[in-house]
Design a protein around this nucleic acid. Structure first.
Lengths: 212, 212
DNA sequence: AGGGTTCGCCACAACTTTGCAACAGGGCGC
DNA sequence: GCGCCCTGTTGCAAAGTTGTGGCGAACCCT
C-alpha cells in the first residue's frame, strides 16, 4: 500500500456530483482534498496549496480543460490525472500531449437501475427492456436525476445544470418536463417508480433502497 | 520522475502491417512506441516499460486479447484501447468488463452490417451487393458513424473527426453531406435503414438490435 | 376541516431543428 | 480557358421541441 501521509489532491470539476464522488473516494484513501469548480479557480488554488496531484475534468465551463492543464504545468510540474467522458483517441492524444499523466474514463457507462437503462453514448432510454423516445431536454433532466439517486434537486438547480443558467423566475418549466418524462416512462401518478416529488423542494430519482 | 513530453504507448498486434500503421501514426504524434506481437510479450513489456496507453488487438494467437487485457490491468491501471474487427455487442461488453476504455475498428478491416458493406482499403461501399459511389468526405462520415453503431455523434464531433477541427460555427455542412449520403444509399426518408437522426443532438448509425 | 400554496396534467402557440433542393465558389484535369 | 465534380451555403417547408397558462387535485400547516 502506498504511503499517503497527508498528500494533497486538487480535484477540478464543475459538476458537483462528480467532484464530490472523487473527493469522497480520495479522502477515504487518506488524502487531503481540495475542490475547484472552474479553470481560474483551479490555477489559483494550485499555486496556493501546491497539490501533489491534480484530478482534472477535460470539459470545464469557460476555459478548456487542456488549457488549464497547460497553465498548471507552466509553473511547476505536477502529476495530472485527466477525467473525461470523451474517450476518443484524439482527446487522449491531445491530453497526453499537454502533459497529462494518465486518463480516467468518467462514468459515461450506461446507467442501469430499477428497470431503467440509460445509455449516454447512444442517447437511449429503456424501461424494463422496451425503448423510450426522449427529447434532448428530457434526457438531460432524467440523466441528471438518475446519476445521483436519492439526491433532491430544486427546480433552480435543475435549470442550472440542464439549461445552464440560474435565473429561475418561478415558472413551471421543470414541472412540465418532469410530467412529460413521467408519462413517457409509464409512471404511475400516485406511486412513481423513478422520479419522486419532494413537496416544496424539487425532484429526486428514487433510490434502490427506497421502498414505497 | 517520468518525462512528461515523451509518453509511451504499447501496441499489441500480431499483424505487422497493422502494428506498423499504428506505430507510425503515434510516433508522428510524438509518442514513444513499443510493439508486442503476442500476449506474453505484451504482459512482459507492460511491466517493464510501464506504458501510458496500451493499444490492444482483440484477436491474438495463443492468448485471447481479453485475457491479456485482464492480466495487464491486474498490476496497475492503464488506459486500454481495444482494436478489433469484430464489432458485435458481446465483444464490447466483454471488453469493457475487463477494463478496456474504448473500442476502435481496425483501420483496414471491411465493415459489413445490415446490407451495407464498407471496404476501407478499397474505399468502396455497397448496399445489398450493388456498389455505391461516395466522395471522400461522404465516405469518411459514413465510416465514422458505422465504426461504432448506435453511438450518437454531434455535428461538432463529426467535424472534429472528419474535417479535423473544432470550430463548428453552427452551419449545416454536416446535414448536407448526410443528406447526400442518404440519397446515395437509397434511404427511405421516413425510416432510414442506416443513418438515424437524433433530433437536437446529431446522427448515429443504426444498430442491428435497433428495431424501429 | 379550512385556507393558502404547490403540484399534476393538458392544450396551444412560439420557437428550434431538420430534410430537401437549388446554387455558388474552388480545385483539378483536359 | 472550360467544364466537371466536390464542397459549403442558403432558403423554404415540414417536423419536432419547448415554454406558458389554466384548472383541479394534492399537500402542508394551523
Amino acid at each position: 500500500m502506498k504511503d499517503v501521509t497527508q498528500q494533497t489532491v486538487l480535484v477540478v470539476d464543475d459538476e458537483e456530483a462528480i467532484a464530490e464522488a472523487v473527493r469522497a473516494r480520495l479522502q477515504s484513501e487518506g488524502f487531503q482534498v481540495a475542490v475547484a469548480g472552474d479553470g481560474p479557480e483551479a490555477i489559483a488554488l494550485c499555486e496556493q496549496i501546491r497539490p501533489d496531484l491534480v484530478v482534472l475534468d477535460l470539459m470545464l465551463p469557460g476555459m478548456d480543460g487542456l488549457e488549464v492543464c497547460r497553465q498548471i504545468q507552466r509553473d511547476r510540474w505536477v502529476p495530472v490525472l485527466m477525467l473525461t467522458a470523451r474517450t476518443e483517441e484524439a482527446d487522449k492524444v491531445a491530453g497526453f500531449a499537454v502533459g497529462a499523466d494518465d486518463y480516467l474514463t468518467k462514468p459515461d457507462e450506461p446507467i442501469d437501475r430499477a428497470g431503467l437503462a440509460i445509455d449516454q453514448a447512444r442517447r437511449t432510454v429503456a424501461v424494463d427492456g422496451t425503448g423510450i423516445q426522449l427529447t434532448p431536454l428530457e434526457f438531460e433532466i432524467l440523466l441528471t436525476l438518475a446519476r445521483t439517486p436519492g439526491v433532491v434537486f430544486t427546480r433552480e438547480q435543475l435549470m442550472d445544470k440542464v439549461w445552464g443558467y440560474r435565473d429561475y423566475a418561478g415558472g413551471r418549466v421543470v414541472d412540465s418536463h418532469v410530467a412529460r418524462i413521467r408519462r413517457k416512462l409509464g409512471e404511475d401518478g400516485a406511486e412513481p417508480r423513478f422520479i419522486r416529488t419532494v413537496h416544496g423542494v424539487g425532484y429526486a430519482f428514487r433510490e434502490p433502497a427506497e421502498v414505497p
